[in-house]
Simulated assay, not measured.
Amino acid sequence: MLPMQLKIDFLAVGLYLLAGIGFAVVPLIVSRLIVRRSRGARRDETYESGMETIGSAWIQFTVAYYIYALIFLAFDVDVLYLFPVALVYGKYGLRDLIEVMIFIGILSLAIVYAWRKGVFEWKSRTE
């Protein structure tokens, strides 16, 4: 038999799970019930801010665009870690400064590597 506290913990987790599922499913059901459905040829067209589209919506971007975005995201998250580090450090001033400088140095090496590989150069495609 499980102890009473463990049963209460399982009940709390189960209630949170049900609440999470409810918050995900209820809006889907409500939108299905109240939204008017459209039919016709215009339904499959691309919708962009209510304006008529010009040309094809299927534009192929070069891989460099995605690599550039991933590098930005990685460095953005890494720099975000510097704020809590700056708040926590302080007891050992010089050692903390050296650790942060090593961290920034490793990030800088990654930027230099990407730069040397030509990730930041946009080559125009001629079609």
Rank of each mutant, 00 (worst) to 15 (best):
E52D: 09
I54C: 13
G93R: 09
T46R: 03
E45F: 14
F75W: 04
V85D: 06
A74E: 05
S108C: 05
L80S: 07
G105T: 00
A57H: 08
F72T: 04
D76Q: 07
G50H: 06
R42H: 14
L82A: 11
T46Q: 14
D76A: 10
I54L: 15
I102D: 01
Y68R: 11
S49R: 08
V77Q: 04
V100I: 15
A74I: 10
G90E: 00
I102E: 01
T62R: 11
A74W: 08
V77R: 03
V79H: 01
L80F: 13
V85T: 09
L80Q: 03
A41S: 10
Y47G: 06
A57L: 07
G90I: 02
D44R: 15
V79A: 07
R43D: 14
I98P: 01
L97M: 10
D76S: 11
F72C: 06
A110H: 04
I104L: 15
T62F: 05
A86T: 11
T53P: 01
L70R: 03
L80M: 08
I104R: 06
Q60I: 12
V77W: 11
I59M: 11
L107N: 01
F103K: 02
V88E: 12
V88T: 13
F83E: 07
G105M: 05
E48D: 12
A74T: 08
Y89K: 02
I106A: 04
L73K: 03
I106L: 10
G93Q: 09
G90K: 03
G90W: 04
L107Y: 00
K91T: 02
E99W: 09
I54E: 15
D44G: 12
S108R: 05
A110Y: 03
W58A: 15
Y65F: 12
K91M: 11
G105V: 01
V100Y: 00
Y89H: 05
I54W: 15
T46Y: 15
Y65L: 08
Q60G: 12
S108V: 07
L109P: 00
A110T: 05
T62L: 06
V79P: 00
D76K: 06
Y92P: 00
Y92M: 09
A57W: 14
R43T: 14
A57K: 13
V100H: 01
V88A: 15
L70T: 02
M51C: 11
G55A: 11
K91W: 13
T46V: 15
F83D: 04
E99Q: 07
Y47A: 13
P84G: 02
V63S: 04
A69E: 06
G105D: 03
Y89D: 02
W58V: 14
M51H: 14
V85I: 15
S56N: 15
A86Y: 13
Y47M: 12
F83H: 09
E52M: 11
K91E: 12
A57M: 08
L82Q: 04
L109N: 00
E99F: 10
Q60E: 14
R42A: 08
D78P: 00
K91N: 09
M101V: 08
R43A: 14
